[in-house]
Amino acid sequence: MDELRKKARALLEAGEVRVVIGYGGGTGDRARAIFVREPERADELIFDGRCRQNLAIYLTRREVKELGKPAIVATLPALKTVLQLAGEFQIAEGGLVVLAPGADGSLIEFKTFADIEKYLAGAASPIDPAEQAEMDRVRAMSPDERWKYWLGQISRCIKCYACRQACPMCYCPRCTVECNQPQWIPVPSHELGNLEWNVMRAMHLAGRCVDCGDCSRACPVGIPLYLLNRVLIGDIESNFHQRAGMKAEVDYALSTFHPDDRENFIR
């Protein structure tokens, strides 16, 4: 933590960055995102087990962009987000400083996207055992059971769009749900509309989701959205050998064709 605070202070003092996006203490025992713009406030930064939110979400927010060049305190999913955003031309090399604190108080500063790629290639992404158990349970269901399971889950959706607001890849300033000519997704929160919304969001994230889990954590009614994302991640990995957030260049599984693709039917 000391390393992180020291580095943040130095970056701000040197004028190398204008804002450090990091974690600070929130209400009660919570950690929340803070935006440190003065060197003397660098000591407000914390980093511990409570710091799970993917801060890379703020990199594409207009309000944050206007503050100037940022430094970001990045967890593993945030590092992936940085690469995916770079691949989608939302951030540029040199446009930010990436600081990844370790659990032991160490700090890695990434100078280039290539360094992040190298780091991620060797890093394991552990999956929560409880989530894995739920995934296995849903996978084992028959299609009928699974359909009922999802209708049950999705009927609880209140269309608050918290999942979208929490998602670092949902950076579009105008979402498809806000498009009303034509009205693709019905506005009221009925079963069909909810289903359309959630399926659409899952499809828009297919091949792009970095699996940070923020959507599930943001959902006020506790819909296990990570299941949808993770199944798509698995399918894309097994079929197309791609995983979002591993490279700073995007080879979008839904739109790319390679001459050596196994699927001959596209030719």
């Binding site: 989608e88 579009c172 979008y252 739109s255």
Partner: peptide, 8 residues
């Protein structure tokens, strides 16, 4: 949004 996924 300039993601250029359409390009490919």
């Amino acid at each position: 949004v300039g993601c250029f996924l359409c390009q490919a």
